[in-house]
Amino acid sequence: MELRHRHRHSTPENEWPLLASITPNQIIMRPIHVNPHAQHYLSPKNGRFTTVIYANEVGTKLPDDAATAANHIEVHLPWKLFDSPEHGLGLYRDLDPVWQGLARIPNATILVISGHPDQYAHDGVVSVSVEELDKLRRNFNRIMTNGRQLIRESKQGLVHDDVLNRIDPERFQRTVRVTPP
């Protein structure tokens, strides 16, 4: 049996896909999957939204090389709303339901996340405020926390009813559940 190591060779920098462009008041992202071992490598990451724009002041001193640009982007993108450049940019994974829901708007291909409270859909562009997106993120986290708590309580209830009740039925009386787990 012969084992061969597959060596990956990096593509020359001039052939790398353009992930982002930076202007003084926006970061224009083209989010893609960046894991070379994944089936969807280099494919769009946020569904039909092949362009995601963070519209806000990002500074007038613009970076002049890729490493500085990546750092500049990470510093300016709001926390837990966007992925870092090393993860392909675009919306943070926990916010997938946002772009999936917004994709129901016909012909929408550009998603703008802005510091302005305006929300609209016009000519293929959908705009949502940073505040609204962060509110959704916090609500999604709350749902996950509540879901984990419900799962934990359901498991404890099963142990109580199926094990402890059989071991000592008088001490561990069966729990009457109002709603099924």
Rank of each mutant, 00 (worst) to 15 (best):
L89A: 07
A67G: 06
G88V: 12
A66R: 09
L95C: 09
A69E: 11
T68S: 15
P85C: 03
R93G: 05
L77A: 07
K80N: 08
N71W: 09
K80H: 04
L91G: 08
A66Q: 07
K80S: 07
R93F: 12
L77G: 10
R93V: 09
L91V: 03
E74C: 12
P78L: 10
P78F: 08
N71V: 07
L77D: 06
H72L: 11
G88I: 11
L91A: 05
Y92A: 10
T68M: 02
V75Y: 06
W79Q: 05
Y92N: 13
V75M: 13
V75L: 12
P85T: 03
L89F: 13
L95K: 05
F82P: 05
T68G: 10
R93Y: 14
E86W: 07
A69G: 10
L95N: 10
L91F: 07
Y92E: 14
L81S: 03
L81H: 01
F82D: 03
G90S: 06
H76R: 15
P85F: 00
A66D: 14
K80M: 01
A67N: 11
H87C: 11
L91I: 06
L95D: 05
D83Q: 14
S84E: 10
E86V: 14
F82A: 03
D83H: 10
N71M: 12
W79E: 08
P78W: 06
N71R: 14
F82Y: 01
V75A: 12
P85H: 04
P78D: 11
T68R: 12
H76M: 14
P78A: 12
H72Q: 11
H72T: 10
P78I: 12
G90W: 02
H72V: 09
D83I: 00
H76G: 08
E74T: 13
W79L: 12
K80C: 00
A67S: 13
F82M: 04
L77V: 14
L95F: 06
A66S: 11
D83G: 04
K80G: 01
L91W: 05
Y92G: 02
I73M: 09
V75C: 06
L77N: 07
E74K: 13
E86L: 10
W79A: 04
N71T: 15
E74R: 10
D94N: 11
W79K: 13
Y92K: 13
K80F: 04
V75K: 15
K80D: 08
E74I: 01
P78H: 07
V75I: 12
W79I: 08
P85I: 01
H87I: 03
Y92M: 09
F82T: 01
L95S: 09
P85G: 02
K80Y: 04
A70Y: 00
K80W: 03
H76K: 15
E86Y: 08
S84Y: 04
P85A: 00
A70T: 02
Y92R: 15
H87E: 15
E86P: 00
P85Q: 02
H72R: 10
L89E: 11
A66M: 02
G88W: 08
A69L: 06
H87N: 15
A70Q: 01
E74Y: 00
P78E: 09
D94K: 15
L91M: 11
G90D: 01
F82V: 00
R93K: 12
